[in-house]
Computed example of a mutant assay.
Amino acid sequence: MAFHDIRFPAAISFDSLGGPTRRTEIVTLTSGYEQRNTAWAHSRRRYDAGVGLRSLDDVAQLIAFFEARGGQLHAFRWKDWSDYKSCAPSAAISEMDQTLGYGDGATADWPLVKNYVSGEGAYARPITKPVANTVQIAVAGQKLDEGTDYTLNLGLGRVIFASPPAPGAEISAGFEFDVPVRFETDTIQISVSSFRAGQIPSVPLIEVRP
């Protein structure tokens, strides 16, 4: 995957429209009962950046970004303002926000995840594009120091410990993160007169797998 480690202009993405998409296959039996299944282990997010355009300067910035990415060719970072950190939107990030797993005394390389829990259901979302200087890590409730106790692979969203966490020790983390996306079109059509009249162009984006 061709990926440019640059974030789409956050001021434009702030007012954008989008969120997670699932693919569920539903078969209705002759009895009226349903069989439901999914081929996707993870959701895939879609956005429309056009909704966030507020001025012709925004349009110019969008076109420059689009051209520099080669349209659909290169993926990039996107800040989803509705879901961009490990805690609640109103809370401050803490090293205890998300449980990554429990040490086994041998594994030193751990992926960042965000856990979504509701009732008996739960989903662990891989976080592959954490934001630099926002990640906090703890083992057994003890906050660790980056560079001494662990290093980060910001391109893959992985924590590499200097020493594998002890068996049974809870590994937790807090962080901000971006979504890796690409343009879902190779064409952007904008009319200045239409834009001034309030007609917003559609600029679809789609999440890419790392």
Score class of each variant (00 low, 15 high):
residue 124 A to N: 05
residue 124 A to Y: 08
residue 124 A to F: 08
residue 125 R to K: 15
residue 125 R to F: 14
residue 125 R to H: 12
residue 126 P to H: 13
residue 127 I to A: 06
residue 128 T to Y: 02
residue 128 T to P: 01
residue 128 T to S: 04
residue 128 T to E: 05
residue 129 K to M: 11
residue 129 K to H: 06
residue 130 P to Q: 04
residue 130 P to H: 03
residue 130 P to R: 07
residue 130 P to G: 01
residue 130 P to T: 01
residue 131 V to L: 09
residue 131 V to C: 10
residue 131 V to R: 15
residue 131 V to D: 04
residue 132 A to Q: 13
residue 132 A to W: 07
residue 134 T to R: 11
residue 135 V to A: 11
residue 136 Q to E: 10
residue 136 Q to K: 15
residue 136 Q to N: 09
residue 138 A to Y: 12
residue 138 A to C: 02
residue 138 A to V: 01
residue 139 V to C: 12
residue 140 A to T: 04
residue 142 Q to Y: 04
residue 143 K to C: 12
residue 143 K to D: 11
residue 143 K to Y: 09
residue 144 L to E: 08
residue 144 L to N: 12
residue 145 D to F: 14
residue 145 D to E: 13
residue 146 E to N: 14
residue 146 E to C: 14
residue 146 E to Y: 08
residue 146 E to K: 10
residue 148 T to V: 10
residue 149 D to C: 02
residue 149 D to N: 15
residue 151 T to G: 03
residue 153 N to A: 15
residue 153 N to P: 10
residue 153 N to I: 11
residue 153 N to C: 06
residue 154 L to M: 09
residue 154 L to F: 14
residue 154 L to K: 03
residue 156 L to S: 10
residue 156 L to P: 05
residue 157 G to N: 08
residue 157 G to M: 13
residue 159 V to E: 13
residue 161 F to A: 07
residue 161 F to E: 07
residue 161 F to Q: 06
residue 161 F to V: 02
residue 162 A to K: 15
residue 163 S to K: 15
residue 164 P to M: 11
residue 164 P to L: 15
residue 166 A to I: 13
residue 166 A to Y: 07
residue 167 P to E: 06
residue 168 G to T: 10
residue 169 A to V: 02
residue 170 E to N: 06
residue 170 E to I: 06
residue 173 A to R: 09
residue 173 A to Q: 07
residue 173 A to G: 07
residue 174 G to Q: 09
residue 174 G to R: 08
residue 176 E to A: 15
residue 176 E to Q: 15
residue 176 E to F: 07
residue 177 F to S: 03
residue 177 F to I: 02
residue 177 F to D: 01
residue 177 F to L: 05
residue 177 F to T: 02
residue 180 P to A: 05
residue 180 P to H: 00
residue 180 P to I: 02
residue 181 V to L: 00
residue 183 F to D: 00
residue 183 F to P: 01
residue 183 F to G: 00
residue 183 F to W: 07
residue 183 F to E: 01
residue 184 E to R: 00
residue 186 D to A: 09
residue 186 D to Q: 08
residue 187 T to Q: 01
residue 188 I to N: 02
residue 188 I to Y: 00
residue 189 Q to S: 08
residue 190 I to T: 08
residue 190 I to W: 03
residue 191 S to T: 04
residue 192 V to G: 02
residue 194 S to A: 14
residue 194 S to R: 12
residue 194 S to P: 01
residue 195 F to N: 05
residue 198 G to P: 11
residue 198 G to W: 02
residue 198 G to H: 03
residue 199 Q to H: 07
residue 199 Q to T: 12
residue 200 I to R: 05
residue 200 I to Q: 11
residue 202 S to Q: 14
residue 202 S to Y: 02
residue 202 S to R: 15
residue 203 V to Q: 00
residue 203 V to D: 00
residue 204 P to W: 00
